[in-house]
Design a protein around this nucleic acid. Sequence first.
DNA 1: ATGAACTATAAACTTAGGTTTATAGCAAGA
DNA 2: TCTTGCTATAAACCTAAGTTTATAGTTCAT
Lengths: 119, 119
Amino acid sequence: MKINDVSKLTGLPISTLRFYERKNLIPDVFVQRDANNYRIYSEEIVEYLNDVKALLSVEFSIEELSLLVNQQLHLSYEEKKKVVEQKIKEIEDIQKQLRKSKKFLEDVLEGKANFQTKC
Amino acid sequence: MKINDVSKLTGLPISTLRFYERKNLIPDVFVQRDANNYRIYSEEIVEYLNDVKALLSVEFSIEELSLLVNQQLHLSYEEKKKVVEQKIKEIEDIQKQLRKSKKFLEDVLEGKANFQTKC
DNA sequence: ATGAACTATAAACTTAGGTTTATAGCAAGA
DNA sequence: TCTTGCTATAAACCTAAGTTTATAGTTCAT
C-alpha cells in the first residue's frame, strides 16, 4: 500500500501521515521504503492508525503516545500498567466533566439554566 | 472583587482572565472599571467562569462560546435550541469515542490488545 | 512616605498539532 | 513521449489558547 491508499482508508491527510511519522508515531514494522524511496505500508497500519486516532482525539498527546509506543519494549509490565491505568483515570475524569457539561446544556434548553439569566 | 480574587476563586490565571475578556467571553454585567481603571467583578462571575471552564475544557472553543454568550440576546429560541442541541450531540460523540478508547486501554492492560502485538 | 505588591495595556512569545509551499524525482495511461 | 498524477523532503506557515515581557500607574502596610 502506498501513502495515498492509507490516507483514503484512514481518513488522515497524507501530510498528517508524514507528520506522524516524523513524530515517531509510526513504528518501522508498518512502513518500509521501495526502490524510489516511496513509503510502502503493511495492511495492519489501518487498524493501528484507527486506534491512534481514537487515542489522540481526546486523551493522549502525540508526544505521550509516541513515548508509549516506542518505549514499551523497554518498559516493565508494572510500568506500562501504571501509564495505562493513569490514562484510564484521565478518561474517567473527562467523562465526568462531559456529563456535567451536558447536564448544564440540557438545563439551558429547559430554561433551568441560561447564560443570560446569569448576567 | 478585583482580578486577583477572581483568579484565586476560579483557579484561572490573571492573564487568562484578561485574555478571555479580550475574546468577549466576559459579559459587561460581570465586570466594571473603578476610578483607576481596575476591573471590579461581581460575585456571580465565579459561577459563570466555572461553567465556562467546564464548557471550554472539552467541547467548546473560545470563539464558539463567545458567539453563543454574546449573540443569544439576538437569537430566537429555535436558533439557540439548535446550537445547544448540536453541542449536546457533539458531546455524545466524544463520550462514545472515550468509551471506545477506554475499552482499548483496558484490553491493553488485560493483554487482549497491545501496541506491540500490532507491530 | 516608601517599598513591596497589585493593577493596567500592548506586543511579543510559546506550544501543539498540523498544513502549505517550493522543489524535484517517478509513474502510468493516451 | 508527454502530460497528468503520485511520491519525496525541507522549511515556512497557520491557528488556538494562552503566557510573558516591558512599561507605567496605584495601594497598602510599616
